[in-house]
Design a protein around this nucleic acid. Structure first.
Lengths: 214, 214
DNA sequence: TAGATTGTTAATCGATTAACAATC
DNA sequence: TAGATTGTTAATCGATTAACAATC
């Protein structure tokens, strides 16, 4: 039932709403939020309608209520525990992502195969030897696994995690993980974003026009 | 004219095709690629049709030709020069991204405001003081700017870059940049991916069903 | 009241899916 | 020939956009 374009716009609304709340504002209109995202106000109204929150004609939406409604809609009121696989550059970057706690994401264990990394403390997280994966996960099972290992290693690590009962993955490796049907994988395709930009550049320079889209 | 879902699937096809080529294979069928991405073969055929490459009935597509056609379609045969703003954890992670050169992306300058970072060498790139931005950019103008500074600083940095003539942005900051209409911004919304996963988890645990989607 | 804003219903658009023809 | 695969055309589905009614 979650609708992808709507859900993906939600964090951007939230970011703006936090700032407005900080500035002491109480109400926001759909056109105000839409202008910031550079979309049509009707899209924003439809998005907000998905959360079930009613607005106030003539005044818009109550910012506090809207923040709560959006957070609830995208599941950011629920705490989600995670294990991070791979403490390389991308993994370390995610460990330093200040916003994660406010998203409800709590990284409770970190693994790497590199002896230089094992035992180290990265941003407050002790890095475990990936050989200890089964033991640590059994002792302290996370809800999701964040895959930041190399593309070559990703499938094997995923297999182990599936066998340990992990059913949700956030995959930053540049592969499509092969998992059982009841396992949910969210892929973060950084190459896909760059492909969009590169092809936009290519067509823009040809003078062709196209929808901005995502 | 580039179609978003199609373009975003292209790097995943490529990844698989590189591996197949490595294994010495010459032909690939749409159903083979589709199985890997867990989509319907007709989607793959439509995607490939966008590139204009004809296949061979009974045999599928010639892998070498398909790689070339996809790379051309998403602009990965053209070299794109970039400047990186922000050498924090995410910026450093991108500097270490081994795949970028094969995407045609060449980071030619790196900037940061942090005195601890300035002058340092990060993965072979000297970090410049962001105060030197105008001088360095004028001397060696990049095609795109990759924004990895904090959300607070992103808009100001973008304004400067726009005034220096940069017209393409890849934005990893969690804000919607306000730029002139002729400037193209590709946003990488990591929070959006997590929002998708979190709401999928929420609905999955309620026992509700929904399209897997992205 | 007039005006601004939400919210509903219908129309449009674009992407996916289905059916099947073409052909190697 | 039979079978596998591409490729075309039409149908469906889902998201966006448009029009406008409701109401504070």
């Amino acid at each position: 039932m979650p609708n992808s374009p709507t859900v993906r716009r939600m964090p951007t609304y939230l970011h703006r709403l936090f700032r407005m709340r900080n500035d002491g504002e109480q109400f926001v209109s759909s056109s105000e939020l839409a202008r910031y995202l550079r979309i049509e106000p009707i899209v924003t109204r439809k998005d907000i309608a998905m959360t079930g929150l009613p607005g106030h004609r003539r005044h818009g939406y109550v910012i506090d209520e809207l923040i709560a409604a959006i957070k609830d809609y995208i599941g950011w009121n629920d705490k989600i525990t995670a294990t991070l696989l791979g403490a390389g550059s991308l993994g370390s970057a995610l460990l330093g992502y200040q916003d994660f706690p406010s998203y409800g994401l709590d990284i409770i264990s970190v693994f790497d195969a590199n002896p230089d990394k094992i035992g180290q403390d990265i941003r407050g997280h002790r890095v475990f030897n990936i050989k200890l994966l089964p033991d640590v996960i059994k002792l302290n099972p996370p809800k999701i696994a964040i895959i930041c290992v190399t593309s070559d290693a990703a499938q094997q690590v995923a297999d182990t995690l599936v066998s340990l009962g992990i059913r949700y993955f956030w995959n930053f490796a540049n592969v499509s993980l092969q998992v059982p049907d009841d396992v949910i994988v969210q892929r973060e395709v950084i190459a896909g974003g760059f492909a969009m930009l590169a092809s936009k550049i290519k067509y823009a320079e040809k003078g062709e026009h196209f929808n901005l889209g995502d």
